[in-house]
């Protein structure tokens, strides 16, 4: 009988992110992480930053599980100068459409790295969550699943309210399949208070509530009431305040991979 030495299992180290610009479109910028063992046609997970523009931090924190699951990561960088109000899809001051910028980025990643960007899993944190759900409403055919985490407020499925509070006068027509996209909301258990980045107005507070947790619940209810995707869900992260590092410590990344159907164990 031959004795085999016990060697601890060690996953391959995740590769490092790359910072890229779309050729000829220098304001289209993104971070990309390609897993070591990427399956052909693997669906990318798109990570959208909040107003701190922490795109590289998102990629680095998702890197290990993404590498394990063979999921490529794309994190657009919406610079303040060009895309000040990227969360609302249209920046009124610069006249730039952040949704179109993401579509260009997806095309660039597909062309240069052979990624299957026709359908994506879309995650956003805080301001990025605002963008993510609004992008999914306008480009539902490109989004298989959307995970908005800790958004400040939401676009309600109400055609009578003006964009970005509702669907009327949206920057582009709302996609007919918007109601089919599964939206898996995440919010921190301790996001029940106010924070300086949270927008308030009498109308918004009356429609959605006065804090992130109340607003997530309100939007989730509104989706169900409108008869949109029944697969949608709301997850409350325990002991989590409005801070990405805190959410990361409390299992945000694992939760996202579970919600998009990637356990990160392949």
């Amino acid at each position: 009988m031959t004795a085999l030495a016990l060697v601890p299992h060690r996953d391959a180290l995740p590769p490092r992110p790359l910072f890229l610009r779309c050729p000829g479109q220098p304001e289209r910028e993104y971070y990309l992480l390609l897993p070591v063992a990427m399956r052909p046609g693997a669906e990318p997970l798109v990570l959208v930053h909040g107003i701190s523009r922490n795109a590289p931090e998102l990629v680095l924190r998702f890197a290990e599980l993404a590498n394990r699951a063979g999921v490529p990561l794309i994190a657009p960088l919406f610079q303040r100068e060009s895309f000040g109000q990227y969360q609302q899809v249209l920046d009124q001051r610069a006249g730039q459409r952040s949704d179109l910028a993401l579509l260009d980025i997806l095309d660039d990643a597909a062309r240069r790295f052979g990624l299957a960007t026709g359908r994506i899993a879309l995650f956003g944190f805080s301001g990025g969550a605002q963008f993510a759900h609004r992008f999914a409403l306008l480009h539902a055919h490109r989004v298989r699943v959307c995970v908005p985490a800790s958004a400040g407020w939401y676009t309600l499925p109400d055609p009578a309210l003006a964009w970005p509070l509702g669907l009327a006068q949206s920057p582009a027509s709302v996609h007919p399949d918007a109601g089919c996209v599964p939206f898996h909301l995440i919010v921190g258990q301790r996001e029940r208070g106010d924070d300086e980045a949270l927008r308030h107005s009498p109308e918004l507070d009356a429609l959605q509530g006065s804090n992130r947790r109340a607003r997530a619940r309100a939007w989730h209810r509104a989706l169900r009431k409108a008869g949109w995707s029944l697969e949608s869900s709301l997850t409350v992260l325990p002991r989590t305040r409005h801070n990405f590092s805190c959410a990361h410590r409390n299992g945000l990344v694992e939760t996202v991979f579970r919600l998009i159907g990637q356990q990160g164990t392949e």
């Binding site: 490092r16 992110p17 790359l18 910072f19 910028e29 971070y31 701190s52 523009r53 922490n54 795109a55 590289p56 960088l77 610079q79 303040r80």
Partner: peptide, 9 residues
Amino acid sequence: PVLAPQLCF
């Protein structure tokens, strides 16, 4: 905090 990671990566 936006430019420094760009240089790095």
